[in-house]
């Protein structure tokens, strides 16, 4: 079982979280000319990296906050967790 450290609540079991997918995906900016390709990349296309993957999780059965988790998709090792609006260097 994964243990995810919620930046707000501390270390919790995977059962309290739900997954929200790739956190590096950016929504195209509104009020700008947006091409079909940009929408495709936002809605459908994913890199689905093997190795380090920055992803969104929601602490659904806890504080209900969305967080970012840096996890290895081939070993399931979790390196770091961040608040949703935290800048990651």
């Amino acid at each position: 079982m994964l243990h995810i450290k919620c930046p707000h609540c501390g270390m919790r079991s995977q059962n309290e979280f739900s997954y929200g997918g790739d956190a590096s995906v950016k929504r195209p900016e509104l009020n700008k000319e947006i091409s079909d390709e940009e929408w495709d990349n936002f809605v459908y296309n994913r890199k689905s990296l093997r190795g380090k993957h920055l992803e969104l999780w929601q602490h659904l059965y806890g504080c209900r906050q969305w967080i970012k988790v840096e996890r290895d998709t081939s070993t399931h090792e979790i390196f770091n967790t961040y608040k949703a609006d935290e800048e990651i260097s």
């Binding site: 739900s18 997954y19 993957h53 081939s74 070993t75 399931h76």
Partner: peptide, 13 residues
């Protein structure tokens, strides 16, 4: 299991 993974083994939940 519900999250991106290349591991050919799963978790118990």
């Amino acid at each position: 299991d519900g999250y991106n993974s290349y591991a050919q083994r799963g978790n118990l939940p």
